[in-house]
Each structure stands twice: as C-alpha cells, then as structure tokens.
Simulated assay, not measured.
Amino acid sequence: MSLQITPISPALGARVTGVDLSLPLSADHHQQLHQALLDHQVLFFRNQPLQPASQARLAAYFGDLHIHPIYPNVPEQPEVLILDTERNDLRDNALWHSDVSFLKTPALGAVLSAKQVPPYGGDTLWASSSAAYDGLSEPLKRLLDGLTATHDLSKSFPESRFAVTDEERSRFEEAKRRNPPSSHPVVRTHPVTGRKGLFVNEGFTTRINELPELEGDAILRLLFSHATQPQYTVRWQWQKDDVAFWDNRITQHFAIDDYRPQRRIMHRATILGDAPF
C-alpha cells in the first residue's frame, strides 16, 4: 500500500500517514520512506506510540545505530537515548545544531519519539541546509568551496555543565577521548541525491580551518544566520506519540526551550552515516 505524503513547507518537511511504525516495515514501505526522506528531508507522523525496541528496529532499517557518549539511554535498549528535562541539561538542544557532527562519520539521521510533551510550547524547528546553500550568492559559494571546519563535542557539552560530579567527570573525559574534534567540508554533498548543503552549525562548529580566526568567525556567523532564515525552515508542534524522522546530512534543528517548568520527555534513535565529502 502507498503512503500518503503531504508536504507542509516549501523548503522541507512532510507529514506521512498510512503506516504503523511499531510494526516491521514492508520492503515497499521501507523504499517509500527512504524516498520521502530524500525528497522532504524531515518526515512527521502522528499517533505512533513506539516502545524503545520498536523505535530502534525502525531506525536500524536505515543504518547502524549510535550510542550517545553523554546522554543517558534506555537501559534495555541503549541505542535509544533519553531527553528528559528532569534528568538532562538540554540547553545544547536549544540552538541550531546537526546531531553528533563532531563524529568522523556524523549521523545519517534520527528517529525522535515524543513520550511526554507540555500542553503548549516545546516546538522543534528544522532548517534545510540545501535550500540555504541554494540561496547563497555565487561568489560566496566559490569562497566556501574547498573550505573545511572543525566540529567539537565540547562546544555543546562543556565541562562546566557535564562534568560536575566525579561520575560525570569520568564519563565526560572518556567521551572526549573517544570523540576528538573532527574536520568536515563547509559545503557537504549529499551521498545519495548529490545536492550540496551547508555543513556548519552553531552547536558544534568551532572554526574554519583555512581562514584566520577573525575571518573564519565572521564567515561562520554569517552562515549560521543565513542558514536558519524562516524561508528555509519548518516548525513542528508536538503531540504525545508523534514521531519525527529527519536526514541529518542535509538539515539542522532547534528544540525551543520555552516551556519550563513543564516537563518534556523524548526518545531518540540516531543512525550513523558516512564521512562527509
């Protein structure tokens, strides 16, 4: 059976119906979801209650899964991390970022499941990196071509916030040891579609390697601002049991932290990708 795919923004985003994500995917639905992800970059599903095992199985159809070095996870399903405002310092999510871009092989994508959401607030925005790249002037595109940038875990996960106790410090130091800073192209080519997109983000990108610090910082500020203009974005208002599935190679996102002291709990399964080029 064909899925119903309804675009919700010109730049990116579509709502998908006609599939039960808690069940194993048929080959046909797998192919349709993969194509929809390439076409729309982020997919949204309503009323899809997922247990951690089902969420991990769904994500694993699209690649190997990542275990996050900092965030807690579901004990019986460690590939599913927990984002809970009563357990985590989530300020690093309240800025534009591309998940785990500090890895040598950053995430292909992620499946995010809403477990508890406030009655209002707590929306998430996604921005299309390809739409943002397309919106640049040709001279700026030529300037960026061939440049690389450093991505560092410590920018979003500083020691002052994530290494307070002895146990946290031990885990933090191990995370830094296993995840040293990585360099990636400023302009990334999508490995399937061939589309170019900006691959720098406020959450993890610290510098442009080939430029002096003053020039590099100015270019990064420009790109951070340009890439998140409203015309390149889509905004999702969460309901309990919603699921979002996005292509992390060609998007970035921002979880709005405007709902405290209300509680918000999300589960995320992150799919590993390949080295950007």
Results as ranks from 00 to 15, higher is better:
241 D>W: 06
263 R>N: 06
61 Y>E: 03
59 A>K: 01
52 P>E: 12
77 Q>L: 11
165 T>L: 09
75 P>N: 11
174 E>R: 09
67 I>T: 15
273 G>K: 04
57 R>P: 00
60 A>F: 11
133 Y>F: 14
247 D>F: 06
166 D>P: 08
103 L>Q: 15
237 Q>R: 13
41 Q>C: 13
112 L>G: 03
46 R>E: 10
157 F>P: 01
239 Q>G: 12
29 H>C: 05
62 F>I: 05
112 L>Y: 02
59 A>I: 02
140 L>A: 04
173 E>P: 04
275 A>Y: 14
231 Q>M: 13
217 D>R: 15
52 P>R: 11
229 Q>Y: 09
234 V>Q: 12
101 S>H: 03
126 W>G: 04
200 V>F: 01
123 D>L: 08
200 V>L: 01
75 P>M: 10
164 V>F: 13
193 T>K: 05
41 Q>Y: 12
180 P>M: 10
84 D>F: 10
228 T>D: 06
118 P>V: 05
263 R>F: 10
142 R>W: 13
205 T>W: 02
247 D>C: 09
174 E>C: 06
75 P>K: 09
146 G>F: 08
24 P>R: 02
197 G>A: 06
26 S>E: 02
154 S>T: 15
81 L>K: 02
8 I>V: 14
264 R>E: 05
75 P>T: 13
174 E>Q: 14
18 G>A: 05
156 S>Y: 07
125 L>K: 06
111 V>M: 07
263 R>Q: 12
87 R>T: 14
184 H>S: 02
162 F>T: 00
94 A>V: 08
14 A>H: 13
165 T>M: 08
182 S>D: 04
185 P>R: 00
186 V>M: 06
47 N>K: 09
237 Q>H: 15
232 Y>C: 06
92 D>I: 12
177 R>V: 07
85 T>G: 07
70 I>T: 03
174 E>G: 04
106 P>Q: 07
73 N>D: 15
89 D>I: 13
53 A>K: 14
37 L>R: 15
55 Q>L: 09
141 K>N: 07
5 I>A: 05
238 W>V: 03
105 T>H: 14
242 D>N: 09
30 H>G: 09
83 L>Q: 11
119 P>W: 11
177 R>Y: 14
59 A>M: 01
14 A>R: 15
263 R>I: 12
